[in-house]
Design a protein around this nucleic acid. Structure first.
Lengths: 190, 190
DNA sequence: ACCTGAACACCGTTCAAGT
DNA sequence: ACCTGAACACCGTTCAAGT
């Protein structure tokens, strides 16, 4: 009887589903960034997205997976915004990155504290670090001795994380970034 | 009738109270370090100390204040253990400190993620950083230009925090600490 | 496939009541 | 002062039931 079967592609509902997912991610993102992960109940996320709390569990396995989707969205935006910045002087790039990540610093802290408890978050965190290190590697001046080069990248990476996670005034932030960049110049051919 | 009033000092129960407090802190400390702060219910702490959960609230205002007491205890031990280490070469001191803090890295992450939510923890964190920075200042070689000196201390401090909070193998840890120490020597009179 | 109402298990915290 | 039994409010998650 039902002759529509062949005419209706199986992914007919794929688009609406992706839209609903995006709405949930957007709602969670706003609340996570503003209030933090733990203080935000699934309750409020659902309410903001106009659904019942348990509906979220049709789209995401649990709260951590929702956080993961939010982190991916934020990272993608950061990457897109970084594109023109990649031409700036190294110290300016660091200052920019710190200011950018600072807006989601509460989520960075959450990621660190949940690494031991969520393998998925641990994986995301590793990918994130690999990405930042790759960016820094491309920006380091001249031919550095590869032994010290890796150490330098780690130091810069950790310093940026520290600047982000502690609230440090703009002047101090800039001084620290300048010191980091200056050091690379010293280590290179001088 | 009761003539003992004058003979009984008002702090007669101070010692037992302090002991019970110490027992609770010890129980919480073991569980927090082993399982983490959030995954440890007040339930289990009380059970380990042989009391009812609500008894804890006679000694501590809430779970955060209990964490604070645990952090103070850990910090005091670290300070005592540091005493002989203070004579070592700078890089060795850093490696030692990283190894030491790593054993409680889960609590460090918890502190960072709860800074925004608990003013008391925020205060403790500030004191902790001031202390580490003071230690580093005393260890820095020669007369550094004070402008760059502060930046160096911050960078070392953040790098140590990064080494602690990410699981990094011993070789890499040492390389990073050597690089940090070498940098100070370069900045000093050479 | 998609969503809901109702419930479950757990947890931090409180409070009236005991000694 | 010190401790408990019982309860409260909240929260992540599940599940049977609807469409």
């Amino acid at each position: 009887m039902s002759v529509k079967i062949a005419a209706m592609p199986s992914n007919r509902r794929a688009q609406p589903q992706a839209e609903k997912r995006a709405e949930l991610i957007s709602a969670a993102r706003d609340l996570f960034v503003q209030d933090g992960y733990d203080p935000t109940p699934m309750n409020r996320i659902a309410q903001k997205a106009g659904v019942t709390p348990n509906t979220i569990y049709w789209y995401f396995k649990d709260k951590d997976e929702l956080l993961l989707a939010v982190l991916d969205a934020l990272l993608q935006e950061d990457m897109a915004a970084y594109d023109p910045v990649s031409q700036w002087p190294l110290a300016d790039q660091m200052v920019w990155l710190v200011g950018r990540l600072r807006q989601t610093s509460t989520l960075m802290a959450t990621v660190h504290s949940r690494i031991r408890v969520s393998p998925a978050l641990n994986e995301w965190h590793d990918r994130f670090h690999a990405l930042v290190e790759a960016l820094l590697l491309a920006q380091l001046p001249g031919p550095l001795p590869p032994a010290s080069r890796d150490a330098e990248i780690r130091i810069i990476c950790f310093a940026i994380e520290g600047l982000v996670s502690h609230q440090i005034d703009p002047v101090t932030t800039r001084q620290t970034c300048e010191a980091l960049a200056a050091r690379c110049l010293v280590l290179a051919g001088r």
